[in-house]
Amino acid sequence: DETGKFLVLSLYDYQEKSPREVTMKKGDILTLLNSTNKDWWKVEVNGRQGFVPAAYVKFL
């Protein structure tokens, strides 16, 4: 199980638009929880879990 094993870097600021999403700032290091959807990845940032656009992050 690779859940929570990968870190990704936020390339852009992102403001959550729904309760299922999370806000991140450019340069944030996020824990990747799920990347099965090619468009939206589930991450943990600042103690919160939610989705961010996959195009806004990259693997470290």
Rank of each mutant, 00 (worst) to 15 (best):
D1W: 13
D1V: 14
D1E: 14
D1Q: 14
D1K: 11
D1L: 14
D1M: 14
D1S: 14
E2S: 14
E2V: 14
E2R: 13
T3M: 13
T3D: 12
T3P: 13
T3Q: 14
T3K: 14
T3C: 15
T3F: 13
T3E: 12
T3I: 13
G4K: 14
G4D: 11
G4Q: 14
K5E: 09
K5M: 11
K5C: 15
K5F: 13
K5I: 13
F6M: 13
F6I: 15
F6Y: 13
F6R: 15
F6C: 15
F6W: 14
L7D: 03
L7Q: 10
L7M: 11
L7W: 12
L7R: 10
V8I: 09
V8C: 12
L9K: 09
L9D: 00
S10Q: 03
S10D: 01
S10V: 15
S10A: 15
S10R: 04
S10P: 02
S10K: 04
L11Q: 05
L11F: 05
L11A: 05
L11N: 03
L11Y: 05
L11K: 06
Y12G: 07
Y12K: 13
Y12T: 10
Y12P: 01
Y12S: 10
D13N: 08
D13Y: 05
D13I: 04
D13L: 03
D13M: 04
Y14W: 10
Y14D: 02
Y14Q: 01
Y14L: 02
Y14A: 02
Y14F: 08
Q15I: 15
Q15D: 14
Q15L: 12
Q15E: 15
Q15M: 12
Q15A: 12
E16T: 08
E16N: 07
E16I: 05
K17M: 12
K17A: 11
K17V: 09
K17W: 04
S18A: 09
S18L: 08
S18Q: 07
S18T: 12
S18F: 06
S18P: 03
S18Y: 06
S18M: 08
S18K: 07
P19Q: 09
P19L: 09
P19R: 08
P19E: 12
P19F: 10
R20Q: 13
R20V: 11
R20E: 12
E21S: 07
E21D: 05
E21I: 05
V22P: 01
V22F: 11
V22M: 09
V22H: 02
T23Q: 04
T23A: 07
T23C: 06
T23V: 04
T23Y: 05
T23H: 04
M24H: 01
M24A: 01
M24C: 05
K25G: 05
K25D: 03
K25Q: 10
K25H: 10
K26N: 03
K26F: 05
G27C: 08
G27Q: 02
G27T: 02
G27L: 02
D28V: 05
D28A: 07
D28P: 01
D28G: 03
I29K: 06
I29P: 02
I29T: 06
I29N: 02
L30F: 05
L30P: 01
L30C: 11
L30S: 02
L30K: 00
T31G: 05
T31Y: 12
T31F: 12
T31D: 04
L32H: 01
L32F: 05
L32N: 00
L32S: 01
L33R: 03
L33P: 00
L33W: 05
L33S: 02
N34E: 14
N34V: 08
N34F: 06
N34H: 07
S35N: 13
S35K: 11
S35I: 10
S35Q: 10
S35F: 12
T36D: 15
T36Y: 10
N37K: 06
N37M: 08
K38E: 10
K38I: 09
K38M: 10
K38G: 09
D39Y: 15
D39H: 15
D39F: 15
D39N: 12
D39W: 15
D39V: 14
D39T: 13
W40Y: 07
W40Q: 02
W40H: 02
W40T: 01
W41H: 02
W41P: 01
W41E: 00
W41T: 03
K42R: 10
K42C: 15
K42P: 01
K42L: 15
K42I: 13
V43P: 00
V43D: 00
V43K: 00
V43C: 03
V43A: 00
E44C: 11
E44Y: 06
E44L: 08
E44Q: 09
E44D: 09
E44A: 09
V45T: 10
V45K: 11
V45L: 15
V45R: 11
V45P: 00
V45H: 13
N46R: 10
N46A: 10
N46M: 09
N46I: 04
N46W: 05
N46G: 12
G47V: 02
G47T: 04
G47M: 04
G47E: 05
G47N: 07
G47Q: 05
R48C: 06
R48H: 07
R48P: 01
Q49W: 07
Q49R: 11
Q49T: 13
Q49E: 11
Q49F: 08
G50D: 00
G50P: 00
F51A: 01
F51E: 03
F51D: 03
F51Q: 02
F51N: 03
F51S: 02
F51Y: 15
V52I: 10
V52P: 01
P53M: 04
P53G: 02
P53Q: 03
P53K: 04
P53I: 05
P53S: 03
P53E: 02
A54F: 03
A54S: 14
A54K: 07
A54H: 03
A54E: 01
A54W: 03
A55F: 09
A55Y: 09
A55T: 11
A55I: 12
A55R: 15
A55D: 09
Y56S: 10
Y56E: 02
Y56Q: 06
Y56N: 05
Y56K: 07
V57A: 02
V57I: 10
V57R: 00
K58Y: 10
K58A: 14
K58N: 07
K58D: 08
F59H: 09
F59S: 08
F59V: 15
F59D: 06
L60A: 07
L60M: 11
L60R: 03
L60I: 14
L60G: 04
L60S: 06
L60T: 07
L60Q: 06
L60F: 12
L60W: 11
